[in-house]
Design a protein around this nucleic acid. Structure first.
Lengths: 156, 156
DNA sequence: CCCTTGGGTTGGAAAATCAAACCCTCCTCT
DNA sequence: AGAGGAGGGTTTGATTTTCCAACCCAAGGG
């Protein structure tokens, strides 16, 4: 998934180059849930074993997962999220929320997540500075590297 | 990208089935920036024209983009985000922030986004109920549909 | 008339994915 | 001791996707 021709230097593209391949984020979902064993991952993500194997290698090398020995004799491994991996969990929660609302229309949700405050988690992406929810109209792109030419209404 | 075998009913998987294919989120990025014309999309995402064409069809049919005529004679089209599409923008911002921090380590950022409050946008995913940032330790998964068996430390 | 721009479609080669089978180590049961 | 099973993968060959370049069409422009 190397973005060999993408003329835009872009952290979104870079991030997707690491976690944007098929199954990668589902693997992260499972690992964050604590289901970090190979065949749990096979069952729960539906990924073919060889693909899963490739994804795990990539995610470990990218510093998103670690491979941990949880039993010597017999040798058994488990994958766990690193700090960087855990910091992607909010992305998963946001994707989940979008799917809950737009694809399932809020009915028959297969899983809920409870926040420590006691309510069901409804993730809201906010501006770290002012705390307001991020809305499209409030954003202005300010390109800082060559390759960025903006023409539309959002342009700076 | 039909998740034909994924045994888990999951809104994350469902959402990725719609926007998780290669280039889809980059297309959305450009469209949100106002670069909604076919060859702008080709240049800015690096997607092959046929793939782009397929992605656009899919995103329109999924209700994430709309195809708008901006010039009759000669007929010229432009893609724009729908409300549902705009609601995915926070996901893009969160991915960007992760990439900025973990892949570029904060140096030489190719693009900044400014929030209407005047600061540079640093998106933070928060709990809609209490407003606190979402951290892994504060989350508890509560499966509600069959197919969900949790074994790890995050299990309910 | 010829060339360019915008917005695609088509065809064949290259790469990724898939499913099933296989392998190896250790463990347990008989 | 042998049979069988679980965990954690790798290998093989068929199927799908992606990729790239070429092509097509309609509408200006010089």
């Amino acid at each position: 998934m190397a973005a060999t021709k993408d003329p835009r230097p872009c952290s979104i593209a870079d991030t997707l180059a690491v976690v944007g391949e098929k199954y990668s984020l589902l693997v992260l979902r499972e690992v964050c849930l604590g289901n970090g064993r190979f065949d749990q991952l096979v069952r729960n993500t539906g990924a073919p074993r060889d693909i899963l194997s490739a994804r795990l290698r990539r995610l470990v090398e990218a510093g998103i997962l670690t491979k941990r020995l949880y039993s010597e004799r017999p040798q058994r491994f488990e994958y766990r999220p690193t700090q960087a991996g855990l910091e992607l969990e909010p992305v998963l929660m946001t994707l989940k929320e979008w799917g809950d609302r737009h694809l399932r229309k809020g009915a028959d949700l297969p899983m809920a997540v409870e926040h420590s405050c006691g309510s069901e988690l409804v993730p809201v992406v906010t501006c770290g500075a002012c705390g307001d929810p991020v809305r499209h109209e409030d954003l202005t792109a300010r390109p800082q590297a060559p390759g960025w030419t903006l023409t539309g209404p959002t342009a700076a």
